[in-house]
Write a protein that binds this DNA or RNA. Structure first.
Lengths: 331, 331
DNA sequence: GTGAAAGCGCTAACAA
DNA sequence: TTGTTAGCGCTTTCAC
């Protein structure tokens, strides 16, 4: 089924059919004719041909680090809904935090000549220059890109770490440990820095190094980190966890040792999926995952539409408001 | 950057460049020449042109009902990994259980001339005939398609319902309620049927109708259903929940009423995300979500490769083995 | 084994 | 306003 067969059936030229399908002005009486013919022939425009000719496409790429993490699913949902509303589809790639997989997806985006790409970069020096060189706009989300001059949509991680630590200090906890993702990843370092600032501001003699743990961004990572912390000569009396999945691991381990978050303080930067089953007493700072996705998509769509202002960094979510799950401590 | 510029730089014809990039036989000495030239020019083959010419594409579509449900994320992960290993990319669509959104994504798949589509249908009469008419293979996953003659990769839901009910009967529970998704959806009905069979086989006088609840496939749905069941003149002493998210809602409500799964039996068909925080005593039947995705992708890839055997229905996961979370009842 | 040439289905000048 | 025509970048006969 091509535009020519539709044209023949409708008794017009191919250009007229093309015009009808692209909303270009055409005598009103021809429109139903063409639509009718297209309908009867089950005609669907061939996007490959269209893309080839126009050098555009209505597909955007989304590359996330872990599609099984609810944070990224919500983010993806935000991107998808926003893109869909604007007539774009989403190609999803999962980098698994691996640069090589990420590279593969960037190459796919390039060869598909996607309209644009939203990426939660696996590293802060991920290379998107090939895309930029082809005028394929890129927006970084959740993390920034050090080597590329692109828009970023992020949250203030340091402030989050600080807020999550402060709420534990207010509760009277004093030896507050910190568990975040692998060191030298941006979000992990920033969150740890926030914690560090809050602790040393409160108590300049606090031996921060002893209570900072880096672990892998998964449930077992949190579990292990918790074990190591408890084994310390002077174990912490509370913990700030900078990642949702690790928090699950920490909480599992905490519950197993018979402790509760009322005795052993817990604050988390990130949302806990299905929070209803989480032991009460923890302090949560919600990350606007969906909004990050929506905003990233909105910025990308503007770029696709031709926006040429200098790249911006958009920070969402601050100021942070910790939320207590369950009843206050006294209860 | 086109194939012609690469050809010029390498001192060969465009056809030779094309051959090199497609692994067609060429004098060995030309290959490095061409690759070198391509490299220097940052050449990336234009897939739109390729698709237009060859009428193929290396992108497959995946349409799921709820990307925020861990079941579908695992499934998506299975699809993605399998597809990627075979050199295919995945376009993801979220139907939100809505036929209209599903239709949109099917149309996108059609106009993009995707290589194939894996769909977890929103309804059992979702219409994929347009795709089939264009020789775009379709594989149904998790649910079957009544009106289309396509491959399906599913689980035995009735057997799952039966197994989940039997384990509660063995524990001594007798008034076992059933909560599943909206009635007249296939998976919900099948799971309920399994429960019904198990109950009436055990006790032919059991008043099944009174204890069957349909709710929406979300956390609040499970919560509400649980409330209604408790309000019954003769409340159940146990519950079989046929959906992972609803199970979360049921468990939240259960915990709030101060009950435990040891006194009030709970069995679930489906995986509970981050199961470590779930109250002990529940019986779980794991769904092979990832494997469903992998198998669906494998079947689809075979179809894309030209497999023409009659459509098959592949059933995964049976026999079911309920798993107890936490210690046995006596403990 | 390699190149020249045609054409996949569409859009965009340009001409009428 | 509508049609004619050329060409987007690639693959693939068909000659050589």
């Amino acid at each position: 089924m091509t535009i020519y067969e539709v044209a023949a059936k409708a008794g017009v030229s191919a250009s007229t059919v093309s015009r009808v399908f692209n909303g270009v002005k055409v005598s009103p009486e021809l429109i139903p004719l063409v639509r009718q013919a297209a309908q009867e022939l089950d005609f669907t425009p061939n996007q490959s041909a269209r893309s080839l000719r126009t050098r555009t496409s209505d597909v955007i790429g989304l590359i996330v680090a872990d599609i099984e993490n609810p944070f990224f699913t919500s983010l993806a949902r935000g991107v998808e809904d926003t893109a869909r509303a604007a007539g774009y589809s989403v190609m999803l790639g999962n980098s698994d935090e691996e640069e090589s997989k990420e590279r593969e997806y960037l190459d796919v985006a390039l060869s598909q000549r996607l309209a644009g790409v939203i990426i939660a970069p696996a590293t802060d020096h991920s290379d998107v220059s090939t895309l930029l060189a082809q005028n394929c706009p890129v927006v970084a989300v959740d993390r920034t890109l050090a080597d590329a001059d692109v828009d970023s949509v992020i949250v203030n991680n340091a402030a989050g770490g600080r807020a999550a630590t402060d709420v534990l200090l207010q509760q009277g906890f004093r030896r507050i440990a910190c568990v975040v993702g692998p060191s030298s990843t941006q979000t992990a370092d920033d969150r740890a820095r926030g914690w560090h600032d809050a602790m040393t501001k409160f108590d300049p003699t606090f031996d921060a190094d002893a209570y900072l743990m880096h672990a892998s961004n998964h449930v077992p990572g949190g579990r292990e980190a918790f074990g190591l912390l408890l084994a310390l000569p002077e174990p912490p009396d509370a913990i700030f966890v900078g990642h949702n999945l690790m928090a699950i691991g920490v909480l599992e381990a905490l519950v197993e040792t018979g402790r509760t978050p009322y005795e052993f303080g817990v604050s988390v930067f990130g949302d806990l999926p299905f929070v209803g089953l989480v032991p009460p007493g923890i302090h949560l700072i919600s990350l606007p995952a969906r909004e990050l996705g929506e905003m990233a998509a909105r910025v990308l769509l503007e770029r696709i539409a031709g926006d040429t202002q200098p790249p911006r960094t958009i920070v969402l979510g601050t100021p942070w408001h910790p939320r207590l799950i369950g009843a206050p401590r006294s209860a």
